[in-house]
């Protein structure tokens, strides 16, 4: 039962990163792929109908985490107090910059929100990456059951690391790069004209960097958290996930070569999902490793809520997620095809 919830939460967070990832990526590249006001409106219209729904996956995953693993939720969120506050403020700024920009045609107003949008997107992508790095590396959980992570210490991954050290920064850069590439492929797929051309060109450059970065990040991980690789060897049933990630990466390269927009985008979605899934699968049953004492690590067994509750929750969760998926399919169908700008009065 606890294991099932681990899978469900990993699934929700993966969907979150894949979906919100493309609008973060589009945000990171916003200033580069779109120069004129019409081009920028094209980018915003491409992500406009989706970004809020994408973010709901984070909200829903958060709610699910409180429900299934209250200890993890409370320990991790209070431990990363300041980094999280910064993320929340950035999320606020990013959300309003998408929605407020269109309400005024003053060029300074629009440039201001464009820059806010791009900067906030980049910073959140980096922070998401750094949090992933922290989850893998572990945090200084002690016998009180809580920890407090400073923003950074000496940038080394010792027993008392900060939220930022060389490893988490490495993961952060890797994640931001992949999300930028993901966003570029999304724009390549959903837009036309100069925006699509520029996105395609950027996508090629970014994805060339992804492979070497992936190798560096993997080596870094094997050094910081060797347990993951021991698990990989002892759990053959997780190998297909690895295969998915590698194959999806190949799909990205092949489709970019043949200029197949949708399959390139799906490839990068598969790559992100595969990488996250393999990481989660090898971490299991640990959710939050302790750098001080493995006995203090939070696992699915010592941090979950009661079995009856979890069973009841499952009964509710399944129809809920089916409904959510149905909404998303409907939404993507309703806004299918390339974005065409409407006359300047409505929309973004």
């Amino acid at each position: 039962m606890e294991a099932a919830w681990f899978v469900l939460i990993a699934f929700m967070l993966t969907v979150y990163v894949v979906l919100d990832g493309f609008d973060f990526g589009a945000g990171i590249l916003h200033l580069f792929v779109a120069k004129t006001d019409d081009e920028r409106r094209t980018v915003l219209s491409a992500i406009g109908p989706f970004w809020d729904g994408n973010e709901v996956w984070l909200v829903a995953a958060g709610g699910t985490l409180v429900f299934a693993f209250p200890r993890v939720y409370s320990v991790a969120f209070s431990g990363f107090y300041l980094p999280l506050m910064i993320v929340l403020w950035l999320l606020i700024l990013r959300g309003v910059s998408i929605e407020f920009r269109s309400h005024q045609s003053n060029p300074l107003w629009r440039s201001f929100w464009d820059a806010t949008f791009a900067l906030a997107s980049l910073l959140i992508a980096l922070v998401l990456g750094a949090s992933l790095g922290n989850l893998i590396r572990g945090v200084p959980l002690d016998s009180t059951g809580y920890f407090r992570a400073p923003l950074f210490t000496d940038f080394r991954t010792g027993p008392e690391p900060g939220a930022l050290d060389w490893y988490t920064i490495l993961v952060a850069v890797f994640v931001a790069l992949v999300l930028a590439g993901h966003g570029a492929l999304f724009l390549f797929w959903k837009t036309s004209g100069t925006v699509a051309q520029r996105s395609e060109r950027l996508a090629r450059r970014i994805w060339i960097l992804v492979l070497p970065m992936a190798i560096v990040a993997t080596i870094g991980t094997s050094y910081v958290q060797p347990a993951i690789f021991k698990m990989l060897i002892s759990r053959p049933w997780t190998w297909p996930l690895l295969l998915v990630a590698v194959a999806a990466l190949a799909v990205v390269y092949l489709s970019l070569g043949r200029r197949k927009e949708l399959s390139a985008f799906l490839g990068s979605a598969g790559f992100i999902a595969g990488m996250l899934a393999i990481t989660a699968a090898e971490m299991f049953p640990t959710i939050l490793p302790s750098t001080l004492d493995p006995a203090s690590s939070l696992t699915v067994w010592n941090s979950s809520s009661g079995r009856t509750g979890l069973l009841i929750g499952l009964v509710w969760w399944i129809p809920a997620v089916l409904l959510a998926i149905a909404y998303f399919v409907y939404l993507f169908r309703s806004f299918r095809g390339k974005v065409t700008l409407k006359p300047a009065t409505d929309g973004y």
Partner: peptide, 30 residues
Amino acid sequence: FGTNWARFSDFAGGVIGLTLAMEGMFAFFA
């Protein structure tokens, strides 16, 4: 709930988490 009220989340999360999650899944998506 997690950042400022950790012991509350820890204590009551197994119950109130259900509606926090369902609010997202059933309502905010729609």
